[in-house]
Amino acid sequence: MMSAAALTRRAAPALACIGLLATWQVASLALKNDSFPTAIEAIRAIPDILGDKESLINILASLRRMAIGFGIAVLVSIPLGLLMGRSRAVAAFFNPLLMVIYPVPKAALMPIIMLWLGVGDITKTLVIFLGVSLPVIYHSFEGAKAVEEKMLWSGAAMGLSAAQRLVRIVLPAALPEILTGCRTGLVLALITMITSEMIARQSGAGNILFNALDMGQYDTVFAMIIIVGAMGICLDAIFERIRARLVRWSEPQFDMPLSFS
């Protein structure tokens, strides 16, 4: 039996969604603005978008690029971050470079990379890769740095080599922090994807948004916002499930995600 309190906690995010949509509905009815459709009108437009073969293919292609960019970024960033966390020389080598890159909006590199590599999948995937890398490196770095020295000493005493220690001790010990970085990275992948499509205006979800805006199809604009928002929330929720399962041994973590563009 689930207690009433636990049930409320489970249902709270759904209630929050309904609450937000209701606020939207009331606000749009009150404002009576032609360019601000009601929530119900926007929701009605969702099947039209998902039913349209071309836009569905567009959105799925976006998601595929996002998955590839995210995957490669994670594979490269975790080892780099762990190495930086365990070696002061490696950290001193990479930190300033990363600090310079940090405030540069990755999606803003889109026009330059387009200039070099064209507007194909490689450009878009590369931009997503760049967007995801930094938080994953940063969190892996912090996680590896916090690993207790004595755990590594016991590892060395058991005869593990430096590389083995990194994989068998540092990686699992830093896993909670790494997964926090991946969670941020996942939302960032989505954000970078949308933004770069908004800037390049070639295809994909971001392009559908602005094409609809240009053509004055306001209910499509808002329907698309709901779709993108739902993607973000679902991806985050799925990842949180996986994360919770992988690091069950770890202290219960702060369970609200940090995300940013």
Binding site: P13, L15, I225, G229, A237, L258, S261
Partner: peptide
């Protein structure tokens, strides 16, 4: 709960709105 819903939402998608 509102933060839980809104935090992972890509805010840039709200820009057209």
């Amino acid at each position: 709960p509102i933060v839980r819903v809104l935090a992972p939402l890509p805010k840039v998608a709200l820009y057209p709105a």
